[in-house]
Design a protein around this nucleic acid. Structure first.
Lengths: 209, 209
DNA sequence: GGCTTTATTTTGACGCTGTCAAGATAGGGT
DNA sequence: ACCCTATCTTGACAGCGTCAAAATAAAGCC
């Protein structure tokens, strides 16, 4: 037998995927902090150390979850940009709203993808690093397009603008997700302000103009 | 004896402060994750549970550290704004650079002050909540001043602008501190871009203008 | 001084965590 | 029927936060 997919009563079937799936559920219910390797194993119905034959350690498991998150995110964004009914301005607005929605709908996943747990102290897997970089490159490219289309200001290096814009989006997501400030009700207004700021349409600075 | 301050050879002297002090050191050396109540107690030379008579739990200790961080931050910012040699524009620039510097110089402390560990799941002490809110109010007030002085665009609700601006600063700090992107070398340039963006001086959008 | 009261600290314990080493088991190939 | 290898389990270790109860030392009062 070559394909392991067809044997549901091997030792487990496909423990690797079952673990990822169960981990996703636990994280949704109890947050990343509520996920332990032991509870995870228990949930799937195997012994405590069984997962260690499929993931080097807990971080490796989390890395794969984050990786799946990036794939999911990219897919959603690609879908958004392949809609031919939207012009550049609408795409920018939709992108911003979608980014926030993704982060706010999946706070724990977002935290995994863009949090210190995986990135700090150098552990992220190569696959994760690659995928994340691709995601950022993609964003920079879109910012460049928007600049060319006159949707975003052109008198500014694309990379720098992209870094600042991403900082803004990321910062807002974190402030909300981490419970630091902003009730959900204000988000639409903040989002509008943020878009006006990016487009440099906040009104004249000098009253002497 | 009424004042405990005067007795250095009580049981410990002032275990409360000694713990905070040692915790600060450990965090600087090993990060917040490297701080455990047991190691902390050991470092100070008391038994594992001694700290629990001075802090309800670990979170209470971290809350106090964050509180000290906020006081330290406010003091530095106040000093900056009390310099009469600076005009509004310079103050904005100095503020932005100082905010980044504070966060990047004390990454673990910044994470404590503005991270999910304390804010998420509702545990922050009243004192911490009060101090943090005051800090944000202060920032909003300064943004209002800058708007009146023509340093920042006036055609925009102060609170909204402040929220977006803080998001940008916070997001940048997190991206750098969490090791997600941006080498330290780019920060100055990003900072400049960020300031231009806030001041709406990034250049014309429409090539038809 | 001696006695009591109170503040402070320690010892012991519990359940939880991540993970290593060694043994058990079961499927595939011959 | 055999072995090999992939898979899983059992046992163990060190570490964690924290509770309860016992021990200690200081302070207050006579």
């Amino acid at each position: 037998m070559s394909a392991k997919d067809l044997k549901p009563n091997y030792h487990h079937g496909d423990l690797h995927d079952s673990l990822l799936q169960a981990a996703t559920l636990i994280i949704r219910e109890a947050g990343v902090d509520g996920l332990s390797m032991r509870k995870l194993a228990d949930r799937v119905g195997v012994s405590r150390t069984a997962p260690y034959h499929h993931f080097r350690d807990k971080q490796a498991l989390l890395s794969e979850l984050a990786l799946k998150g990036f794939r999911q995110y990219s897919q959603q964004i690609d879908a958004l940009f392949s809609d031919p009914a939207l012009d550049g301005t609408q795409r920018l607005e939709q992108f911003v709203r979608h980014y926030l929605k993704f982060a706010l709908d999946n706070p724990e996943l977002y935290n995994l993808m863009f949090g210190q747990a995986l990135w700090k102290s150098g552990s992220p897997s190569d696959a994760l690093r690659t995928e994340a970089h691709a995601t950022f490159r993609d964003f920079v490219k879109r910012v460049g397009d928007w600049q060319q289309q006159g949707v975003l200001p052109a008198g500014c290096e694309t990379l720098r603008f992209a870094q600042v814009a991403w900082s803004t989006l990321h910062g807002l997501c974190r402030l909300v997700n981490d419970g630091i400030y902003v009730e959900a009700s204000s988000i639409d207004e903040i989002c509008a302000t943020l878009l006006s700021l990016f487009r440099q349409q906040l009104g004249a600075i000098s009253p002497a103009g």
